[in-house]
Deep mutational scan, measured.
Amino acid sequence: EIHIRTNGEEQARKVYKMLAKRNYDVKIEQHNGQWVVTAS
């Protein structure tokens, strides 16, 4: 499982799309105001 911390919604969405293209199961979560993308 991969966790990627991003500094904002826009970046989180870019990372989300990139990983989704590679057939990862991707989730975006917010932790303490930080956007974290989780891929498995």
Rank of each mutant, 00 (worst) to 15 (best):
T38N: 03
A20I: 13
T38I: 15
V26H: 01
R22Q: 12
T38D: 01
V37L: 03
S40A: 08
N23F: 15
I28C: 15
N23Q: 08
E10A: 14
E29R: 07
A12M: 03
M18Y: 14
H3V: 15
R22A: 13
V26A: 05
E10R: 12
N7Q: 10
E29I: 12
R5F: 14
N7T: 12
R5S: 07
N7Y: 11
I28G: 00
G8N: 15
G33M: 04
A20L: 15
S40M: 09
A39N: 04
Q11K: 07
I28K: 01
Y16A: 15
E9T: 04
V37G: 00
Y24K: 06
I2S: 02
V37Q: 00
D25K: 14
Y16D: 05
K17F: 08
E29W: 13
V15W: 14
I2P: 02
E1R: 13
I28W: 01
I4W: 08
K27S: 07
K17T: 10
K17Q: 14
V15N: 02
D25H: 13
Q34T: 11
Q34A: 09
Q11M: 11
E9Y: 15
W35V: 01
I2D: 01
E1M: 14
L19Q: 00
K14G: 03
K17P: 04
R13Q: 06
R22F: 14
I28R: 00
Y24L: 09
Q30D: 05
L19V: 02
N23M: 11
R13S: 04
A12H: 00
H3G: 03
A20N: 05
K17W: 10
I4T: 02
M18H: 10
M18R: 06
N7W: 11
R5A: 07
W35H: 01
V36I: 13
G8R: 12
R22S: 09
N23W: 14
A39M: 12
Q30E: 11
N23H: 14
E9S: 05
G8H: 13
H31G: 04
A20R: 11
R5T: 12
K14Y: 09
Y24S: 05
L19K: 01
K27E: 04
Q34R: 07
V37A: 00
I2K: 05
Y16F: 10
E29G: 06
S40F: 10
T6P: 03
N7G: 07
Q34V: 13
V36Y: 13
E1K: 14
K17M: 12
H3Y: 13
K27Q: 07
D25E: 11
V15G: 00
A20Y: 06
I2V: 06
G8P: 01
I4M: 04
R5C: 15
I4P: 02
Q11D: 10
R13P: 00
R22I: 09
V37Y: 00
E1W: 14
Q30Y: 14
N23P: 03
W35A: 01
A39H: 05
H31L: 12
T38Q: 04
I28T: 01
T6H: 04
M18A: 12
W35D: 00
V26P: 05
L19T: 01
N23S: 07
N32A: 08
Y24H: 06
M18L: 10
G8D: 15
E9F: 14
K21S: 13
Y24V: 07
K14M: 08
T6S: 05
